[in-house]
Amino acid sequence: MVIDVDKCTGCGACSVACMSENNVGVLEDETEKIRSITWLRVYQIDNGKAFPETEVAFFPRPCMHCQGGASGSPGQAFFQEDTDPQEAHTPCVSVCPAIATDYDDATGIVSQITSRCIGCRYCVAACPYHARYFNWYDVPWPQGTPRGLSPFVSPRMRGVVEKCTFCYPRLQRAKNKAFLGGGKVGEMDYQTACTEACPSGAITFGQLQNPAHKVHKLIQSEFAFRLLEKMGTNPKVYYMSKRKWVRMMADNHLSQAKATQAAASGGHK
């Protein structure tokens, strides 16, 4: 997935579309953000400058579907690498005691199997992006509202962790359709709810490694970057921005050099 920060207007359509796709509940008090479930949270940042130089930008943050284990990995230096190079080492997956979350090698999707989650929250502690949400409360469904729920995603019970799944059931349906039609799952056959919803076209979704897909080209751009690149989480969500301050803020570990280099070649501000 590639998210263009310069196109994102922070409208939240992606976030809401995600909730309606995935049957996320609404509590009575949602201002308690540290317990509010938003698979796709749109963060607002600003450049910290005084009026009238102030500027804001938005970072929609789904689960990054980290692969881990690739370049920039921990432990390169003195100690040994702790992972088998063949094996993904997603921060949250490797810690789950019950295999309630898994890294799918074929798709690179980090699944979340809420019906198996025991609610230990170790994965929540492991994820640096705060992409994982624990169900602290029983979700109240006002009378009548369950009619609008999708049967393709089970509503969650209290005491389990949930997060963005890259709309996994959509992939399953696309696969089924492709199987029945005898074809393959094409780029447009599997698009996430947030991608479809975004009115500004800020989100692009596809296979990063498939040269025929748009995202493959986008991530080659010098303006493309990832959140916390240096942590070695190896996320599958990329961001793009021409604004240097945005790129700098996205990663306190990003070298000044990289941000400047992109700025020099056409970026502004």
């Binding site: 409208c11 939240g12 359509a13 976030s15 809401v16 579309a17 909730m19 309606s20 609008g148 919803a197 975004c198 009115p199 500004s200 076209g201």
Partner: peptide
């Protein structure tokens, strides 16, 4: 495209 009001109309 949609806006949040569309996506949450239900």
């Amino acid at each position: 495209g949609v806006v949040p009001a569309d996506a949450s109309a239900l």
